[in-house]
Design a protein around this nucleic acid. Sequence first.
RNA 1: UCCGGUGUCGUCCAAUGGCAGGACAGCGGACUUUGAAUCCGCGAAUCAUGGUUCGAAUCCAUGCGCCGGAGCCA
Length: 565
Amino acid sequence: MSDPREDEGQPGNFVADRVREDLESGTKGGRVVTRFPPEPNGYLHIGHAKSICLNFGLAALSPEGRCHLRFDDTNPEVESPEYVEAIRRDIQWLGFDWGEHEYYASDYFDQLYAWAEQLVKKGLAYVDSRPLEAIRETRGDFHRPGENSPFRDRSVEENLELLRKMKAGELEEGSAVLRAKIDMQSKDLKLRDPLMYRIKKVTHHRTGDTWSIYPMYDWAHGQSDAIEGVTYSVCSLEFVNHRPLYNWFLKALEIEQPPEQIEFGRLNLSYTVLSKRKLLQLVEEKHVAGWDDPRMPTIAGMRRRGFTPEAIRAFADRIGVSKNDGVVDVGHLEYAIREDLNETSFRKMGVLKPLELEITNWPEGKVYEAELDNIPKNDEAGTRKVPFSGRVFVEQEDFMEDAPKKWWRLAPGKEVRLRGAALVTVNEVVKNDAGEVVKLQCTWDPESEGGNAADGRKVKGTVHWVSADHAVDAEVRLYDRLFAEDDPSDLLESLNPDSLEVLTGCKLEPGIADLPPESRIQLERTGYFVTDARDHVPGEKVVLNRTIPLKDSWAKLAKKMGVRK
RNA sequence: UCCGGUGUCGUCCAAUGGCAGGACAGCGGACUUUGAAUCCGCGAAUCAUGGUUCGAAUCCAUGCGCCGGAGCCA
């Protein structure tokens, strides 16, 4: 807490340091204006969340600071209003508010065009009337300088006339482009007369058929920043190479108080792909059920999986911001969600793979109301009552006929606690013809109501249960990592065949039936779950998605001891 | 190979010429009516070589590794 930066939700990172310095020195007139600039051609993912947290966090460094939401919609071929809506929804859900500052690069098409004519008039831009291949060939490469276009020295009048024809739709697609006149010999390939406009006779989702030419990213982005008065244009590392061009345009246009581009390392996550192209492929080829499939690293998918905005923000804060191009271990994300859910989710009991357990000496018809904490060590969260009777379901996994050392759960002759209810001992194991265990016959210690022995003897093992007469049936979807490889470079090869297991006939404690969709709970000893946003219908159909299992140190131990399951 | 960026515990991030620190992961223990959580403890790093300096992760030089760049994508 001695470090004030911790209180600002922007723990030490080099961008925030810069903003603080500028604030102190008054370099930018005390202004902090950032922007989050998605192209509406896909859903936002956890990598975008990092950027969103950074940009909004930076703006929060100053009381007057603000962060704009700007849709970078300069390529109508791939963009759509569906994505605009999804992006707005996701950012809001994450907990950020851009107020009235919602903008679109397409709002600036007129201004951009006027500026383009201005550059033509200054002799800083020209129309190149050659096909794509010719332009590409004369650009040169890493070792070879480019060659000037034969059209490079057209007169201002001719350039203007051609540019106007491009705009009016009088020229064919691909027949001409507007290029900035910089330096075909530059070592920096981005400066070899970059394209500003291309002809695209495509309907734009906002401007309709008004335009036949659309600006390229480099021509649109910095200028949009300038129009909005952005002070810090924060982007990811792959744009470092664009910065000289970014600044060239601003200078050519004589923009006062030009925005400043600052690059940081975008998020890479192990066992995850964070490329819009690949995510789109997963959706289109139906390897997942959609953009909001709970296995997707999209905001929408994570939301449906049961993640909280708080956990995602804590994750973003904790991984920090730098110019290193690293890969964050998903373990960091998993820790963040467990940390939040542990403190906030109400506890319930549920048996995923039921095994019947009958207490032979339980008084006929007796129902005991077990009182359990909603959240242990949190008095404000209160308690709940859970009905317990002589016939309950326990987890198949919690019983072993030949128990290894250090097995504290159900086994023949072993006394175990049914959480909050009773101490029981297995006397008889009932099997079917196939030799499978179908039922456990137990006796209970009538002096152990609530789960404590009257004589104070310690019982190490505690197991969860659901009363057979009161249980609610449910479908439970167990999600695991979408990819089996930490680096899923070859996308399809790396897919985890077991990323989804759908369980039916699960038995849950009664209260769960009435939970509204998107309710997050912990199933004790099992994991964190959320009622599905689409398929869970209160009072009718219970559908749970597993967000993440609880840590399981027994599994670790068992593995070490070589216990087979 | 040219231009640019970047090299610190297994991973991510700090240390802004002055004791290399935190988080996650791992390991050990305590506690436990969740084998969860919590608590305590342990191990673990400055790419290499040379130089400047009383003192270098930090400055300089050389080398090496990794990433990005030759879309009418963003």
